[in-house]
Design a protein around this nucleic acid. Sequence first.
DNA 1: TTGACGGTCCCACGGTAAGC
DNA 2: GCTTACCGTGGGACCGTCAA
Length: 233
Amino acid sequence: MRKGYGQFCPVAKAAEIFCERWNALLFRELGAGSKRFSELQRGVPLMSPSMLSRRLKELEQEGVIERHADAGRSATYHLTPAGEEFLPLVFALGTWGQRWTRRQLRDDEIDVGLLLWDMERTVRADAFAQQRAIVQLEFSDLPPGQRTWWFVNDGGAVQLCLQDPGFEVDLYLTVTVRDMIHIWRGDLTLRRALDEARLDAHGPRRLVRALGAWLNLGPLAGIPSARADHSTV
DNA sequence: TTGACGGTCCCACGGTAAGC
DNA sequence: GCTTACCGTGGGACCGTCAA
């Protein structure tokens, strides 16, 4: 482990573990259900694999995560009770961030990969009340090869596809990446996005009405900004 | 005396590429 | 799907200079 704060104070001791760069995001990912190395990488794409490997080892040594070896070289990572106890603090960090740090999105924060990864594991596959529902999501501001994605909601599970899965599409969504992030983050309500045609939803009324349930925006999205200068959208 | 500023050194951190 | 070796970089610590 690197140099600590040189204090016996429990706040300092906890900060040595949880305030280390990347660690809070790793707890967010583990808390959201990521278990495999590759899943954690998708959630923290700017973290190098060597750093991820090192951090996981350190957190294992600290007793806040456990490594379960599978067959071969692969493994899964799980929070221990000590790690689980940190999750309310992750939520508190998110709450504070929603209230006090929201500003205009910078260009380097527009990360379609992270958005899609978050959506894939959050949307509710059963929201449309039918066995299988295909949602085509088109980002109007991306080049053709990266523009169109399909969410296959089938049997209670969701799969994200970059290639056309070959099923008939039930619901078409067209939006810019920036506006989708604003919706996802709670800056822009779904109602307003539809009313202002910033999100175009094309399909049976029943499915369009279920869109909010499908998106399954988390509790953080409902937290308003407390900043007086807040005007992100 | 104090604070601002610049230069140098060193080490921890983090990335890349290759290996297992 | 990870791990390791190697290397570049950033920033902290320290020191000297200068002006107020």
